[in-house]
Design a protein around this nucleic acid. Structure first.
Lengths: 222, 222
DNA sequence: GGCGATCCTCAGCGCGTTCTCAGGTACGCC
DNA sequence: GGCGTACCTGAGAACGCGCTGAGGATCGCC
C-alpha cells in the first residue's frame, strides 16, 4: 500500500495506524515521487492526497491510468465540492474521502477497495495477440510494444472496432480521415501498407487481409 | 441511454460525465418514471439504481422483462452482499456495479454492455451447410471458408436471397451486373460455373441447379 | 535554419478479376 | 436415335485494383 500526502505528520500517523491494522505501507510526499513509486511497484491500493507539491493528485491518477496502471486509488480531498469529487472519479480514482476523516472510516474504505480488487480495465481492443488500448494509445504484439503515428493508430483502431467485418476504403476514408479530405483513396492503401510493415514484421503475421474489390478485414485470430 | 437514481446530484454528475463520453443521457429519479421511460423509449442501455422510491430496481427490471423489453440493464447497488447481485442478475439485469463506483469502471462496463448488445448482425444467408455473411463477406461450407471474387460473391448472394425460387439469367444480369452491361448473357453461365467449382469441390455437392429454359435455383438443403 | 517525423501524392508494376469466344456436352423433343 | 438448342467449359486477352518506392509539403523541435 502506498500513502501519498505532503503533510508529513499526518502521513506518518496514517502509516503507523495502517501498519497496526496489518498493512505494509510506503509513504511519499509529493506527486512526482508518487508517480514514480506507483509505476515501479505493484501496490494493491494507493491513498492519494489531492493537494500535492509538483504534481497534484488529479495528474497523478491521470498519468498512472495513461500508463495502464489500474491500481485502486482512494483520493483524499480537503474540499468537499461536488466538482472535486466528480473530477476525481472522472479521472479514474475509485473512491474519495473528505478531510478531516476518521481513521476507522479510512480503514473501512480501504478494505472495501481491496475486496473489490482492481477495477475492470476499459475495453482494450484486440485481435489475437495484437492489442490496442484506446486510453493509453498503446499498441503491442504480445509483450512487444509497437509505435504508431496518429494516422496509423486511427486506422488500426477503426479496423479493430470492426473486427471480423469487411470495411471498404470509402468507409475508412469517412471515419478515419477528416471529412474535408477528398484526395485519392490511395492514401488508405498506403497506410495499410505502413501498418502491415509495423504489425507483421518481424512477427511473420498477416494481420490485415485484403479482400480485393471489397476492402480490408482484420480477424480475431490476428 | 437512461440513468435512474434518486440521488439527484449523483445522477447529474453521471449524466454530465457520460455526455462527455459521447452518450445521450436521460435521467429520471424513481421507479415508476423509469418503467414508463424504459417502456416508451428504445434505449440502448439503462443504468438503474437498486434503491428507488415507489418501485425498486428489482421490480423495474422484472416489469420491463415481463413486457418483453430486453434493453441491457446495469444495476447500481449500495449493498455488496452476494445475494443482491445474484438477485439482480436473476431478474434480468445484465451487469451490476457496487456503490461507490469509479467513473472509468462505469464507462467501461457500459461500453461492454453496448458491445454485447449490439452484435445483432443481419441474418447470415445459408443453404444447408453453406453460409454467406454479408457483413464480413465470408463464405463457408460448414467450417471450411471459401474465397470468392466480388462478382462470384454478388451472384451467390443474389441466389441465396431468392433461395428456393427460380431466377432467370436476365434477372441475374439486371441485379448482379452493372446496368450498363449489355454483353452476352453467357457471362452468367460462366460465373455459375466458377461458383459450382468453388462450392461443390471437393465437397461433392450440387448447390446450384439448372432448370433448362428457365434459369437457376439454389435449394435450402444446399 | 536544419532536421526529423508525419502526411500525402504520384506513377509504375504485378497480378487477380472479369469477360469474350469457340468448341464441346447434355438435355428434350420428335 | 437424331437433331436442335440451351448450357458448360477451357483458354486467353483486356482491364483495373491494390501494392510499393520515391519524393514533395508541412509542422514542430533543437
Amino acid at each position: 500500500m502506498l500513502v501519498v500526502d505532503d503533510e508529513v505528520r499526518l502521513a506518518e500517523t496514517v502509516q503507523r495506524g495502517l501498519a497496526a491494522e496489518g498493512f505494509v505501507v510506503d509513504v511519499v510526499h509529493d506527486g512526482e515521487e508518487a508517480l514514480w513509486a506507483g509505476t515501479e511497484n505493484a501496490y494493491d491500493v494507493i491513498v492519494l492526497d489531492l493537494m500535492l507539491p509538483k504534481l497534484n493528485g488529479y495528474r497523478v491518477v491521470e498519468q498512472l491510468r495513461a500508463r495502464g496502471i489500474w491500481t485502486p486509488v482512494l483520493m483524499l480531498t480537503a474540499k468537499d465540492g461536488e466538482y472535486d469529487q466528480a473530477d476525481a472519479l472522472d479521472l479514474g480514482a475509485d473512491d474519495y474521502l473528505t478531510k478531516p476523516f476518521s481513521f476507522v472510516v479510512l480503514v473501512a474504505r480501504l478494505r472495501a477497495l481491496l475486496r473489490r480488487g482492481a477495477p475492470e480495465r476499459p475495453a482494450v481492443l484486440s485481435a489475437g495477440d495484437l492489442t490496442l488500448d484506446p486510453v493509453s494509445h498503446a499498441v503491442a504484439r504480445g509483450d512487444v510494444p509497437i509505435v504508431l503515428t496518429p494516422r496509423e493508430f486511427g486506422l488500426l483502431e477503426y479496423l479493430l472496432r470492426h473486427k471480423g467485418e469487411v470495411v471498404t476504403k470509402s468507409e475508412i476514408l469517412d471515419n478515419v480521415w477528416d471529412s474535408a479530405y477528398d484526395g485519392p483513396a490511395n492514401v488508405v492503401e498506403v497506410y495499410i501498407g505502413y501498418l502491415r510493415r509495423k504489425l507483421d514484421t518481424p512477427f511473420d503475421r498477416k494481420s490485415i487481409q485484403t479482400l480485393r474489390g471489397f476492402g480490408y478485414r482484420i480477424e480475431d485470430k490476428g
